[in-house]
Design a protein around this nucleic acid. Structure first.
Length: 288
DNA sequence: ATGCAGGCGCGCA
DNA sequence: TGCGCGCCTGCA
């Protein structure tokens, strides 16, 4: 069997797909811009390069399975974002404008385990450092995959992290999040945290309740996990930027508490609140 | 330099 | 239940 063969998948005239919007809107940490403006990233056991050319998007990479299936799932290519954007744009002018700004955003369908650990690390942290920490964890404990002469590393599984100590995490730069990640790994290995159960839970409130039991997972992180890994489009993660943009646009710049914003988002944006959050977040943060 | 960055967990009312 | 505060660390 030929190992590490490059696969290619090309789509044409894809609606709503802009690499910058997708990879720079804060949902993911393992995609990096290349010199030719394409992006290379790693998810599951796949290393993929995404290059936009005129009316084509070219996915090239090393995949254990079929690159087409992997990309359709990960990039949510079966979802019609034109419909989503049309619906959301009718809600109000602010949202319509932010959608124009980030018209090529898609919510990636990310791996639950990686998303869980990544967003525990994200607490009170900034994106460059989050990315650095995740890279160090992967390089130390993940599996190497070679692509175009460069080594990439898979995000380590719970098993691969089973022997890692709190001190090891501290050395990788996790700071006070070291204990949280350690405990989450151990509880996952012992099945006290049951990832499969989380994957199939359809009731949002029960799901959130379960997620909040995990060390290092508070309301914001729980919502990110539901939106980015479990495709729960109705949740509305509130970070400082979202708090800011909602307060500015809808509350005469009087900073509101998360509880008020949560209620507002549910009533105002409805079932697609999570998508609205992404457009508003990207617009506000990018134009800051 | 001191505050801040995509919060959480704790103690206290 | 709802606050306020401290926390690793790197960066401007």
């Amino acid at each position: 069997m030929v190992k590490n063969m490059e696969q290619k998948y090309i789509i044409e005239n894809q609606e709503s797909f802009n690499s910058v919007h997708i990879f720079e809107c804060g949902q993911c940490f393992r995609w990096n811009r290349q010199e030719d403006n394409s992006y290379t990233g790693i998810f599951k056991n796949n290393v993929i390069n995404v290059k936009e050319e005129e009316n084509k998007i070219v996915f090239t990479g090393i995949c254990k399975n079929d690159i087409k299936e992997e990309c359709i799932r990960y990039f949510d290519l079966k979802e019609n974002y034109e419909n989503i954007k049309n619906k959301l744009s009718k809600i109000d002018e602010y949202l319509a404008n932010s959608i124009k700004y980030g018209e090529g955003i898609r919510i990636l369908h990310q791996d639950l385990w990686e998303t869980l650990i990544s967003f525990i690390i994200s607490a009170n942290n900034n994106i460059p450092r989050i990315k650095t920490i995740i890279e160090r964890m992967s390089k130390n404990y993940g599996q190497a995959i070679e692509f175009r002469g460069k080594q990439y590393y898979t995000f380590p599984t719970p098993e691969e992290l089973s022997k890692v100590t709190v001190e090891n995490y501290r050395k990788l730069g996790l700071g006070f999040r070291d204990v949280r990640v350690y405990e989450t790994v151990q509880k996952t290995l012992s099945k006290e945290i049951d990832l499969d159960k989380l994957r199939i839970e359809t009731n949002i409130d029960l799901l959130r309740e379960e997620l909040l039991k995990i060390p290092g997972v508070g309301p914001k992180v729980a919502d990110c996990i539901m939106l980015f890994a479990l495709k729960k489009y109705q949740v509305f993660p509130i970070d400082v930027w979202v708090k800011r943009v909602i307060s500015e646009l809808y509350f005469e710049n009087q900073e509101q508490k998360p509880k008020i914003i949560q209620k507002f988002a549910k009533e105002h944006y409805g079932e697609l609140a999570g998508l609205a959050q992404q457009y508003l977040f990207y617009w506000r943060r990018d134009t800051a």
